[in-house]
């Protein structure tokens, strides 16, 4: 759906200071039909990458290509993309509904089509009650919801979200994650950046991980977890009605299980010690 090919981006603050390299030789692909998480610490280059993808800023070198399904001309490509920027800020004196109509009209929708989309999405985002209020009365979460609504209003094939879950309470995050999964089931590709690793692990098929402007990992979430499984087993057993868990190296696992059985313990479960995606990311030096 989207391919970065050797993208480098340098920023020059002035003539006398050395340029700052925000992205260095970054190449990755966002596969169609998947939910792809874009991870990295603050300043890793996620937002810069998304700005380059959306042609807000131009790379110093390298190319960005989109799937031909999205179109060949920029105007067609952007008609098939829904983009939500980080910390969206909309026209404060417009009402939510007016803003939806504004965005819908820019995507060549008719008034009826826009109203249909609002009726469909607004209740799901739980923002329908506020659409006739001015945007300056909205909370941060409501802004995020109305932003998400206008991102989907023109039924884009490819959805790019920059930190869509930041600023939301846990219930709001859960609701938006459910919607991300739902739109993906409708055949849409979702590419979203986040620094909340557990959210990415929960909903994403693939993950792209940037560190200090360089690509650190690109691939499936399952694979990165499998690759980082520690050679340790967690044995859960019950003795005299009390549950206990012990960690033991894989080589000693069978011997330990025999010992436990000989001591009249009941083995409840034996699992390999899988790290979470969050643990893997935090351990990257």
């Amino acid at each position: 759906m989207l391919e970065f090919n050797k993208i480098t981006k340098k920023f020059n603050s002035d003539l006398f200071t050395q340029s700052f390299v925000a992205l260095e030789d970054v190449s990755f692909k966002v596969e169609p039909g998947k939910i792809v998480g874009f991870l990295g610490a603050n300043g890793a280059g996620k937002t810069t990458s998304l700005k380059i993808a959306m042609d807000f800023i131009r790379p110093t070198s390298g190319t960005v290509t989109f799937d031909k399904n999205l179109g060949t001309r920029n105007i067609d490509i952007f008609n098939n993309i829904g983009f939500l920027p980080e910390r969206p800020f909309f026209y404060p004196h417009l009402k939510g509904r007016e803003f939806c109509h504004f965005m819908g009209k820019l995507s060549d929708l008719t008034k009826n089509e826009i109203n249909e989309k609002i009726s469909f999405w607004a209740p799901r985002f739980k923002i329908d009650f506020a659409l006739d209020r001015e945007i300056n009365t909205y909370s941060k979460g409501m802004l995020q919801r109305v932003g998400f609504l206008v991102t989907l209003i023109h039924s884009p094939k490819f959805i790019i979200l920059d930190e869509p879950l930041s600023g939301l309470d846990p219930i709001g995050r859960k609701e938006l994650k459910d919607i991300i999964v739902e739109v993906n089931k409708l055949g849409k590709t979702v590419f979203f950046s986040s620094h909340i690793v557990s959210d990415v692990e929960e909903v994403c098929d693939n993950v792209i991980f940037l560190k200090d402007g360089k690509l650190y990992y690109e691939g499936s979430v399952d694979k990165i977890i499998e690759d980082n499984i520690r050679p340790i087993a967690n044995i859960c057993f019950r003795k005299n009605g009390i549950f206990e868990i012990i960690k033991i190296s894989n080589e000693l696992k069978n011997q330990k299980i025999k010992e436990l059985l000989n001591n009249n313990c009941e083995i409840v479960s034996v699992n390999s010690d899988k790290p979470t995606l969050e643990e893997i990311i935090y351990n990257v030096k």
Partner: peptide
């Protein structure tokens, strides 16, 4: 400054 431009020019608007 407010990034409203992003949400508009990410549409098919030259």
């Amino acid at each position: 400054k407010n990034r409203t431009v992003y949400i508009i020019i990410s549409r098919p608007v030259p």
